[in-house]
Design a protein around this nucleic acid. Structure first.
Lengths: 118, 118
DNA sequence: TTCTGTGGTATATAATAGTAACCTAGGTTA
DNA sequence: TAACCTAGGTTACTATTATATACCACAGAA
């Protein structure tokens, strides 16, 4: 991560440790930085939440978005999906330990964000 | 932020404290979560960096992207743009105190991200 | 004259986000 | 019985963003 740029005697430049592939920051952002992803994780912090309850809590995000994000999060093992009953079909989503490990970052982000609004 | 869902006697649902507009998490993400935004801020942490040096450090991001992100960051007063000399034109970008205040979040993100790679 | 450097801009296309309507199913209301 | 509520999505379409590529003017060096 310690990128730096060197200039040789002829003025030519070389980069040391360029982030040729996405570096850690960028990778992290791609895990929790997608649109609505952070919000979804944060709203799951107190326990399992049902799909439509999530869509209600995140007014502004469409079902499609939420569905897409939930699938992404599930494929990364950050949340698990549970079908509770089959007749009046009910599904809940819950954070895994890995998903939970991102919460403190989101909470700092929230605190920082709130302190900027004044 | 404490959204919850209530069900009345007839099974109808109401949401309490829905995030009708982007909530704090989402707002924060829009400040530092844009593609490459976090990386740019992070690469400025050690002092002013020139435009082309940034593009070299962030291999993978196009000049246009970086240019766009720098302008966004400048308009939010997270970075400042300085023209150093006019003849061989040179420009540097530097974090403001506000921009700097986001660094600790990014650093936690980096640590978290690195610990996930195994 | 062709190479490097500076800080960008323009154009085109690919990927992603967002909107609204619709689906199967069951239950309730009137 | 129709009409409307719930559930958890899917589909089709449009709008916005990201990416790649080429290009601009200007300067210095071989």
């Amino acid at each position: 991560m310690e990128s730096s740029v060197e200039t040789d005697s002829k003025g030519r430049k070389k980069v040391l440790n360029a982030c040729m592939e996405p570096c850690a920051i960028e990778k992290g952002m791609r895990l929790i930085g997608g649109k609505w992803t952070g919000s979804i994780i944060y709203h799951l912090k107190d326990g399992p939440v049902r799909f439509n309850d999530l869509t209600r809590m995140l007014g502004g995000a469409s079902k499609k978005m939420i569905d897409q994000r939930l699938k992404e999060l599930e494929s990364r093992a950050m949340i698990t999906r549970h079908v509770i009953s089959t007749r009046p079909i009910a599904v809940t989503y819950e954070l895994t330990d890995f998903g939970r490990s991102a919460l403190h970052i989101l909470d700092e982000l929230r605190v920082w964000s709130e302190s900027n609004e004044v």
